[in-house]
C-alpha cells in the first residue's frame, strides 16, 4: 500500500494555470441574455392581454404563474434558437456579441439550459394552471424551434409569414390559461399579430438586408427584390389594419379601442405607402425605419387599449371601483 501526497499548487505566474483561469466565465446576465428578454417582454405583454380579455375567473396568483410560465417558455425557445443558430449569429454584426458566438457560454450549456427551462415551464403550467395551455405552450416552442428556426428560416423567404405564427400564439395561450380552450376571440388576437409580423419584419429587413445576406438567410428583400417586398408590406399592412378592427366588430372591445384602431390603422397604412413610394437612397431607409418604429407602436397601443378596457371591466365586476370611490 502506498500513500500519495498530492500537492496542488496554484501559481499565479504559471502560464498553464492562467490559461484555464483566463477562460471567459458566464455571468448571470449572460444566461438571462440567452432568453432574449426583448422578445420575452413582447410575449409577456401579449399573453397578459389574452389572459385579461378571456371571459371567466382566474385567481390572481394562478394568473401570475401563467404569465411566468409563458415567459420562461418563451425564454427557453429563445435560448434554444440561440443554441441552434450560434454559427449564423457569429456572422452578423447585430448578433455576433451574443453569449454563445462571443464564447461566454458553450453551446452545450445553452442547450441544457434551454431544455431545462422548456420542460420546467410546460410542466409547471400543466400542474398549476391547466394541461391544455401547457400543451399549447409546448407546441409553440416546438413550432418556433422546429418549424420556423430549423425548417422554414433557412429555406424560404416566406419564413417570417408562416413562422410568425409562433410569435402570435402567446395571447392564445394566455386566453387558454383562463378558459382551457380556443375561441374566435383568441383567434382574432392571433390574427392581428400574425398579419402584423411580415410588415414589421420586412421593414426591418429593408435596412439591414446585408446582415441576412451574409448569413445566407433567404429574406424577402434579398430573394424577391425590394420592389416586391414593398408591395407585400403594403398588402399585409392593409390586412393588419382590417384585422385590428375585428375585436370591436366582434364586440369584445369598446368604442375607445375602435376609434384608436381606426386612426392607428390609417397611420400604419400611411407609413406603408411611404415605404412603397420611396424606393432608393436615404429617403427609402428613413421610410423603412419609420415603418418599423410605427409598427411596434401600432401593436403596443392596440393591445394596451384592449388591456385597459378589460382591466376596467374586471374592476367593475369585483366592485373595486366602489371601494376606491369611483
Amino acid at each position: 500500500m502506498s500513500d500519495m501526497n498530492i500537492d496542488i499548487n496554484a501559481k499565479n505566474g504559471n502560464p498553464a494555470a492562467n490559461e484555464l483561469g483566463a477562460e471567459q466565465m458566464a455571468d448571470v446576465k449572460d444566461y438571462f441574455e440567452l432568453l432574449k428578454p426583448s422578445v420575452m417582454r413582447l410575449v409577456v405583454f401579449t399573453a397578459l392581454v389574452g389572459l385579461v380579455v378571456a371571459p371567466g375567473y382566474i385567481h390572481p396568483f394562478t394568473a401570475f404563474i401563467s404569465i411566468l410560465c409563458i415567459a420562461i417558455g418563451a425564454g427557453s425557445a429563445g435560448c434554444l434558437n440561440m443554441w441552434y443558430e450560434h454559427k449564423i449569429d457569429a456572422l452578423m454584426s447585430r448578433t455576433a456579441n451574443r453569449p454563445i458566438p462571443s464564447g461566454r457560454i458553450k453551446p452545450d450549456q445553452a442547450l441544457t439550459f434551454g431544455i431545462l427551462l422548456m420542460v420546467g415551464s410546460v410542466t409547471m403550467l400543466g400542474m398549476l394552471v391547466n394541461w391544455f395551455a401547457a400543451g399549447f405552450l409546448a407546441f409553440t416552442i416546438f413550432y418556433y424551434m422546429v418549424i420556423y428556426t430549423m425548417w422554414l428560416k433557412p429555406r424560404t423567404p416566406l419564413n417570417i409569414v408562416i413562422g410568425g405564427a409562433s410569435g402570435a400564439f402567446p395571447p392564445m395561450i394566455g386566453y387558454a390559461c383562463v378558459t382551457g380552450s380556443i375561441t374566435i376571440e383568441s383567434l382574432v388576437l392571433f390574427l392581428i399579430i400574425f398579419m402584423w409580423t411580415p410588415a414589421h419584419f420586412w421593414a426591418l429587413n429593408l435596412y439591414i438586408k446585408r446582415d441576412y445576406e451574409k448569413a445566407n438567410i433567404p429574406m424577402m428583400p434579398s430573394v424577391k427584390g425590394e420592389p416586391a417586398t414593398r408591395r407585400q408590406i403594403l398588402a399585409y399592412t392593409y390586412i393588419t389594419a382590417i384585422c385590428g378592427l375585428l375585436p370591436a366588430l366582434l364586440g369584445f372591445a369598446g368604442l375607445l379601442y375602435a376609434s384608436a384602431a381606426l386612426v392607428l390603422g390609417f397611420g400604419f397604412i400611411y407609413f406603408a405607402h411611404q415605404v412603397h413610394r420611396h424606393n432608393s437612397g436615404d429617403a427609402a431607409t428613413k421610410a423603412a425605419k419609420n415603418m418599423f418604429a410605427f409598427s411596434l407602436l401600432y401593436l403596443m397601443l392596440l393591445f394596451t387599449l384592449l388591456l385597459a378596457e378589460h382591466s376596467f371591466d374586471i374592476l367593475v365586476s369585483f366592485n373595486l371601483l366602489n371601494l376606491i370611490g369611483l
Partner: peptide, 25 residues
Amino acid sequence: AKSHKHFELDAVTLTDEQKKIIRRR
C-alpha cells in the same frame, strides 16, 4: 513500507471577478 509520491498539479487561480461571478450564479 510507505512510499510517498509527490504530484505537482497546476490548478486554476480564479480572479476576483471570476469569484464574484461564481458567487452571483
